[in-house]
Design a binder for these strands. Structure first.
Lengths: 157, 157
DNA sequence: TACAAAAGTCAAAGTTAGTCAAAGTCAGCA
DNA sequence: TGCTGACTTTGACTAACTTTGACTTTTGTA
């Protein structure tokens, strides 16, 4: 399934990450590029397309002598801020438009895919809920909180 | 039977699908076009006319270096009937356990993925809805109908 | 400070696959 | 015959993803 060099490098890095007990690996860009016979900047490409924060990775690096690239798999603690932000915005009651914006942001930050976002927007709509405004906004808030909690604790793939 | 190039390609692909233990094959569009001496876009034609979701196939692809077209056989007999069956089962009101069973069946038939099923089960739960029983079962029914409709009309994102 | 040794950036080139509409084929029928 | 409509074939154009390399920035050390 993995045909491109980028895919192979991605697999290699994730393999190493899984084997490291600390959930963190440190590489030398040039050494890796050498190992996979590619230009050093391809390592940057792989990292920027496959090890993004949205996908649950945090990357640090340092240039110069003794430089490195460190990749860490982030767990809930590191995302807690974003997670809490979302929950705070939702509160105990949320109108449809606000919820729709939040869903769009979650989609844009790759926390959900298009189908999930579409489904979610339909589920929290006035038409689906068909309840008095006050009650409707409260049910919608509980649904949104459940969405965010699920997204943050059960990452796809 | 017929022996148009498209028919030959269709036969070739289905043959390969049958032989693959995983029920899934991966091809390179250009290689196939080369093999059958046709333009690459004819592969798209064959796929779009013979490997539709209605006929029980799910197709994914990726462009660029290492690109591919992946065809998977999905086990679903008669689409429309299944869709209508689901809607009938839901009706205007549905209790939590019944809805959960339906979600599990949708998951098993690959209409949804694990995370979507998990999310959906949480969304339709007593805890999330927190409404009087009769109202709750009605809201749940509308949510389930929306789920099924979305799944059947918005295949794979 | 100067230099060397890292890593970063960015855009061009390369590699696939997708879309769409025009043209071609063929069978059935008035 | 020759028309019609469904299906197939073709290719120009588009979109998405990857690879490459020239140039830049940062950092440690002599």
């Amino acid at each position: 399934m993995s045909n491109s060099v980028s895919d192979v490098i991605e697999y290699y890095l994730k393999q190493n990450l899984n084997e490291s007990r600390s959930g963190e690996i440190e590489i030398k860009r040039n050494e890796l590029a050498d190992l996979f016979q590619c230009v050093p900047s391809q390592i940057n490409y792989v990292i920027s397309t496959r090890f993004t924060i949205e996908k649950g990775y945090f990357v640090e690096s340092k240039r110069g002598g003794g430089g490195y690239i460190r990749i860490r798999r982030v767990c809930l603690d590191d995302e807690a801020e974003h997670f809490v932000d979302c929950l705070n915005q939702i509160g105990q009651s949320i109108p449809q438009v606000t919820a729709e914006h939040l869903i769009t942001r979650l989609l844009e930050s790759r926390m959900m895919d298009r189908r999930e976002a579409l489904l979610m927007k339909r589920l929290i709509s006035r038409e689906t809920l068909q309840l008095p405004v006050h009650l409707r906004d409260q049910v919608r808030a509980r649904m949104m909180r459940m969405l965010v909690t699920t997204l943050f604790t059960n990452r796809g793939e």
